[in-house]
């Protein structure tokens, strides 16, 4: 198991390197010369060369890529903004906690709401409650976060004046951004839970548990839930990625000073070091979440754990098969 986790962590290195190269290449191939954009029209060749050297843009593709990777790996340095000359890493340190807090609370809400509602809907299949929840889930799944946010703003912020419409200063002002992050995901987790739960409660081992005389509650929480958790964890992991990527839109709507607004401003200004840094950081978090998801599989399901334990043998077998 420990071997598997180490292998899995080591595998993150080439993935992150690949992401870095892709992201860097996209911004490298972008038409337009940032040096000219920064200096404006009246520049001399000397000035141009000095600025290019300062921004590390005077080397070729591989030179730039190399020093970019080197800076990140050795000093955790994502470079500087083209315009403000501020260190990106410092800005990350200030802004990331806000985005992370929104994301983490959002995820807690979506699991705490989505899982029980999904179970309820499965246990009471074909009841009025089930239909109502299914319809709500379908409608929520059709609403992108920003549409939900805007409608929420109109209703609760502007019409009813219950909630503030920008910032994160008071506890009340957290409600709408959190709801924006969590609601579409609640719907998806609910649907996934319902589907898997329905599948599991028809299995023989649930009937066995019932005939043993176990209480419904024990059956549900101990036997059924544990068996349907894996797809739910997969979906939840995917939701974390969605929330992180969606933060750029959510924070823009509510004017929250997190990673999202930082990246948004950078995109508008074509400040590529910032855009690259943000994408990298978010991709890193997604990778970590995927790692946690994979470890969770093994923790929950002894079958998967057993497969990991014997994965070395299996690989050899597979390779052999491929040859023949």
């Amino acid at each position: 198991m420990a071997k598997y986790i180490i292998k899995r962590i080591l595998w993150m290195i080439p993935v992150m390197l690949g992401v870095l190269i892709i992201v860097f290449t996209i911004s490298y191939l972008t038409p337009g010369d940032p040096v000219i954009t920064i200096l404006g029209s009246g520049y001399t060749p000397e000035k141009y060369a000095a600025k290019a050297a300062e921004l590390n843009l005077d080397k070729g593709y591989f030179g730039q890529l190399g020093s970019y990777i080197w800076g990140i790996v050795t000093r955790f340095d994502f470079g500087k903004s083209f315009y403000s000359n501020l260190s990106i890493t410092g800005e990350f340190a200030r802004r990331f906690p806000i985005t992370a807090a929104l994301g983490i609370f959002g995820c807690i809400i979506m699991v705490v709401l989505g899982l029980p509602l999904g179970i309820l809907s499965a246990v009471k299949q074909y009841s009025v409650l089930d239909y109502t929840l299914t319809v709500i889930a379908l409608v929520l799944a059709a609403m992108p976060g920003f549409v939900l946010a805007i409608l929420g703003l109109v209703l609760f912020g502007v019409r009813l004046r219950w909630l503030p419409i920008t910032g994160l200063d008071t506890p009340k002002s957290w409600i709408l951004p959190l709801a924006t992050n969590a609601m579409p995901c609640v719907a998806m987790i609910m649907r996934q839970t319902r589907t898997n739960m329905l599948e599991v409660i028809r299995q023989d081992y649930i009937r066995t548990a019932r005939s043993k005389g176990l209480s419904e509650r024990t059956i549900l929480w101990k036997h059924a839930l544990k068996n349907c958790l894996i797809p739910i964890i997969t979906v939840t992991g995917g939701m974390v990625a969605m929330v992180m990527a969606g933060s750029i839109i959510t924070e823009n709507i509510f004017n929250i000073k997190g990673m999202g607004t930082y990246m948004y401003a950078a995109i508008m200004q074509r400040d590529y070091p910032i855009v690259n840094g943000c994408v990298l950081l978010i991709a890193f978090i997604v990778c970590c979440v995927n790692l946690i998801v994979d470890i969770c599989y093994a923790l929950i399901d002894p079958r998967i754990r057993a497969r990991y334990a014997s994965s070395g043998k299996k690989h050899k077998k597979k390779a052999h098969k491929e040859v023949t």
């Binding site: 992150m16 892709i22 969605m242 990527a245 990246m263 995109i267 074509r270 994408v279 978010i282 991709a283």
Partner: peptide
């Protein structure tokens, strides 16, 4: 598959944002 792994590490909306900010 390794290439797909890398592509999937970037959330799709974020990838779209990065590409379309580059392409215009």
């Amino acid at each position: 598959t390794r290439f797909l792994d890398i592509l999937q590490a970037i959330p799709s909306l974020l990838l779209a944002i990065a590409i379309s900010s580059a392409l215009g």
